[in-house]
């Protein structure tokens, strides 16, 4: 009575089999690797594109833009060489200003970032900008060398002086606007001689 239906130790099992070609695993493997390679290169391209499209830290790049504009119009407008040099010096001075400013900012931005005050997007932009400013200054020096061979050393010294003097000028020129703001904020009534009307 112990041998009844269901004791399935000794019966053979019928398993379905399918014929698979030898090439199947090869094709599968190569498809996989190919798709990963394509994905990798596309991703890298996208990253580079993103980096180049990152908005600059600074609002504008006028010094640089003006130089290239003048350079391109040089022939048709018959622009004197010294004007181009002036534009290049202006560009150099601006690059010096930006690199000093970024150095000063980097510790502060790092602290703000680590404390969670700004997001990853800004941090990326900032690091990108540091590299760009460096690059910009190097490009400027190359242009200087092209304009006047051997000028580079003097150019750097001149750019530094110009940078500081321009800052002083800007501060001096802002006095008029500051005076206006003070009058408005403090509600001052001044006579023609600049004295307070009692």
């Amino acid at each position: 009575m112990s041998q009844s239906e269901g004791s399935s130790f000794y019966t053979t099992v019928d398993v379905e089999t399918k014929l698979v070609s030898v090439y199947t695993p090869l094709i599968y493997g190569s498809l996989l690797i190919l798709s990963l390679i394509i994905f990798g290169s596309q991703y890298r391209k996208k990253q580079i594109k993103e980096l180049s499209e990152l908005k600059s830290i600074f609002d504008e790049n006028e010094a640089r833009d003006l130089y290239y504009e003048l350079k391109s119009k040089r022939e048709e407008d018959n622009i004197h060489e010294k004007v181009i040099k002036a534009a290049l010096l202006n560009r150099g001075a601006e690059a010096v200003r930006r690199s000093i400013k970024l150095k000063e900012l980097s510790t502060q931005i790092e602290i703000i970032y680590k404390n969670g005050g700004i997001g990853d997007d800004y941090w990326k932009r900032f690091q990108n900008e540091v590299k760009l400013v460096d690059l910009e200054f190097k490009e400027t020096l190359q242009e200087a060398e092209m304009l006047q061979p051997g000028w580079v050393q003097l150019f750097v010294a001149l750019s530094k002086e110009i940078c500081f003097n321009q800052a002083l000028s800007r501060r001096y020129d802002s006095i008029a606007r500051r005076t206006e703001t003070c009058i408005k904020e403090w509600n001052l009534k001044l006579d023609d001689n600049g004295r307070l009307i009692e």
């Binding site: 600074f58 609002d59 700004i118 997001g119 997007d121 703001t181």
Partner: peptide, 21 residues
């Protein structure tokens, strides 16, 4: 974070010679 970025942008780019109001 976009607002924070905007604030940082402004802080870096505003003219320090002008009085803040």
């Amino acid at each position: 974070i976009k607002t924070a970025s905007h604030f940082v942008d402004r802080m870096i780019n505003y003219k320090p010679s002008e009085i803040v109001t």
